[in-house]
Each structure stands twice: as structure tokens, then as C-alpha cells.
Amino acid sequence: NRMYLVCPMNTSAHVDPQKSGHEVWEEFSHSFTPAVREVVEFAKKIPGFRDLSQPDQVSLLKAGTFEVLVVRFASLFDVKDRTVTFLGGKKYSVDTLRAMGAGDLLNSMFDFSEKLINLGLSEEEMSLFTAVVLVSADRSGIENVNSVEALQETLIRALRSLITKNHPNESAIFTKLLLKLPDLRSLNNMHSEQLLAFKVH
């Protein structure tokens, strides 16, 4: 009954069988913590984010960190080669990950990454899109919905303006980007279910 960690936020999918469940969890946590801190640092730089109440900043980050990481690490999923590169640099084929127990979430991540990368966004566009992903007024636990909504609208307007300026002949890109938001929610839900299975295991 070997155990594998098929999330690319790990350094490797292989788990040392000598390690206790707690040690495995600690190692996993150690892997993703720097990435989470980077998301927080990114959020701090979003104009207006620090003006939100502190509980709302925490709620947005709690709810949206996974989705931001999905956008940020879309390039780990190589659609052409059907491989996933883990943060430690190890590359696994889809077949290998499937044999390790990866399920529907893996396919969904590939679909999402392919569609996002195919939009060919610049770094600036991707960054603004990521800010829109994070600042969503309908996350659970938001106290001051109006403030978050106002910031969200400002960010969406800025994204639309930037996309329109950079892609004058591709007006559908902005719509396609907004349609990625429910896709990310869906991935987030699937991921939460996987986490539950992992914790139960």
C-alpha cells in the first residue's frame, strides 16, 4: 500500500514509507508554504487590497489561494507532452500519475491550463487576471461585501481596458478570461474533495 502525493506542489510524488503520516504532512506543508507566502505578497501589491478590512483580506486569501496557484503554475502542466512537473523539478507523465491514483482533477487541470496558456497573455495581463481571481466579493465570510465588490469592479475594468488595448482584434479574450472564473471555482471544489480524501487517508 504505497502512498503517493500527486499534487505538483510537492517536491516529489513519492512518499518515504518510513515516514509517519505527520511527517509526510509536515513535508507537504513545507513544500507549499513558500508559494502561499508569494500569493500573500502578490495580494499586498494589488492597489486597494490593503485598504480592505483585515478579516476580509484573510477570507479572500483563504478562499482564493488555490485558484491563484492554479493560474500561476499552469505552466507546470505540459499539455503537448502530457506531463506534470513538480516543484522539486521531477516530471511525471499523466499515465504515471494516474497509476499513482490521480483522478478527474488531473484532467481538469490540464484542460484549464491548456485553455489559459492558449490565450497567450502577457505577464501584466496574467497578473491583473490573477488579481481579479483573488478579489471576488462572493467568497464566503466576507464582511464588507461592498468594499470588495468595488475593488473587484475596478480590477475587472482595468483588465478589460488592458486586454482591449493589447488585443484590439480579439475581443473574445476578455470574455474567455471571465469564463475562467467559474472553471477555477470548480477546480477549487474538486481540490477540496481531494484534500478531504487525503486527510481521511
Binding site: S29, F32, T33, P34, V36, R37, V40, E41, K44, Q54, Q57, V58, L61, K62, A63, T65, H191, S192, E193, L195, L196, K199
Partner: peptide, 27 residues
């Protein structure tokens, strides 16, 4: 399992990073 972020320990990491807790940062 309504709060996966808390279960992962994310909330603690997020709070510390938001407060700029330098002691918690990796070297």
C-alpha cells in the same frame, strides 16, 4: 469539510504573511 484552508494550515500562513512576520520567513 467546509474550511479546507484552515485544515491545511493555510490561514495561519496567510495571517503571518499578512502581518509581515519576518521570523516565519525562510532564510
Amino acid at each position: 469539510f467546509s474550511d479546507p484552508a484552515s485544515n491545511l494550515g493555510l490561514e495561519d500562513i496567510i495571517r503571518k504573511a499578512l502581518m509581515g512576520n519576518l521570523e516565519e520567513r525562510p532564510e
